[in-house]
């Protein structure tokens, strides 16, 4: 029983950074912008977050700095793809390469410095409940924040006018412009939000998961977050499902490896990717056969430059 709880807890910690980054990118893509720089923004958040936390001895300031770093990088991206209508694919890839390199410089002074991770919040009484207590009510603030983000984004996109306008910009920027909406400004806000989320996800890695800095510590999580958005058909709740499925499989295959299952470890390590893709593809196929039309934002990845 305690092993099961321990596994559940590790699954949540594995899934949370994926979820935070994915939910940010989901909003960006719903506005019609494809930012392939998630990995770069995430690792900049990780480097800046841990650096500022060490210097100021404040985890909170570290987190805020990580968010600011992610937003700064996304602002650079916005300048290229919105201001200059540059190709979004190339700009996003460049952003990832740039972020990976710059984070090495920013993080260099802090290599090897260990600090205490951000503590879990224990809700009194509730966290004493067996099994679900530790899982639901004894988590770090990021986990609660990620759940709140999913709920908030889902509510924003489908229950508010601003969310409707944002989706409209992703569907048909020309029509949205014709109706008088500032498409570029709306897309800018979305890109900045995505950058903030990626930075926050990076902070989770360097302030909670492994509370120190190593170069390249995101280890491809930004790319997995991007894949989760696509396979989740741009739906927040399904992105959460995807993140937890993926996080769960990573942890389970680790346990399978330590338990000495007679399968090559490389295959086990690849399994989470494979199963996540298969599962989410099946969901997408089911959705399509139910006649829900095209799932991707119609103008995703296409630059828009209004003529006046």
């Amino acid at each position: 029983m305690t092993l099961a709880v321990a596994i559940a807890l590790t699954i949540i910690t594995a899934a949370t950074p994926l979820l935070i980054a994915a939910i940010g990118e989901l909003v960006v893509e719903r506005a019609g912008v494809l930012n392939l720089g998630v990995e770069g923004m995430m690792i900049m958040g990780a480097a800046t977050g841990v650096g500022v936390a060490i210097v100021t001895e404040s985890s909170l300031l570290g987190v805020l700095a990580a968010i600011a770093a992610g937003m700064a990088l996304s602002a650079l991206f916005a300048l290229m793809v919105l201001g200059l209508a540059a190709n979004q694919y190339a700009s996003g890839l460049a952003l990832t390469i740039f972020g990976l390199g710059l984070s090495g410089v920013v993080g260099a002074p802090f290599v090897g410095i260990q600090r205490e991770g951000i503590r879990r919040i224990e809700l009194p009484l509730l966290s004493e409940i067996p099994v679900i207590g530790p899982i639901l009510f004894r988590q770090d603030p990021f986990v609660y924040a990620s759940i709140a983000l999913v709920a908030g984004v889902a509510w924003f996109l489908w229950r508010t006018r601003a969310g409707l306008i944002l989706r409209a910009c992703g569907e048909n920027p020309v029509s949205a412009h014709a109706l008088g909406y500032r498409v570029l400004r709306i897309r800018l806000y979305a890109v900045l939000f995505g950058g903030a989320c990626a930075g926050l996800a990076g902070a989770y890695l360097s302030l909670v998961l492994t509370p120190f800095w190593t170069a390249g510590m995101t280890a491809g999580r930004g790319w997995i977050a991007l894949a989760i958005v696509v396979f989740a058909s741009w739906l927040p709740l399904r992105a959460m499902l995807g993140a937890y499925l993926f996080g769960g499989l990573i942890i389970l295959q680790l346990h399978a490896q330590t338990a000495g299952v007679n399968i090559p470890s490389q295959f086990l390590a690849a399994l989470p990717y494979l199963i996540t893709i298969v599962a989410l593809t099946l969901i997408m196929a089911a959705r399509r056969s139910a006649g829900r039309g095209s799932v991707a934002p119609a103008s995703l990845g296409q630059p828009f430059a209004p003529a006046r």
């Binding site: 006018r161 409707l164 989706r167 409209a168 909406y181 039309g293 119609a298």
Partner: peptide, 20 residues
């Protein structure tokens, strides 16, 4: 009323109207 429709295919009729 535009000649080339300024509608959003993926949205519902009501959502299209609300946007305008």
């Amino acid at each position: 009323v535009f000649q080339h429709f300024s509608l959003f295919d993926a949205l519902s009729v009501a959502e299209n109207v609300a946007l305008a």
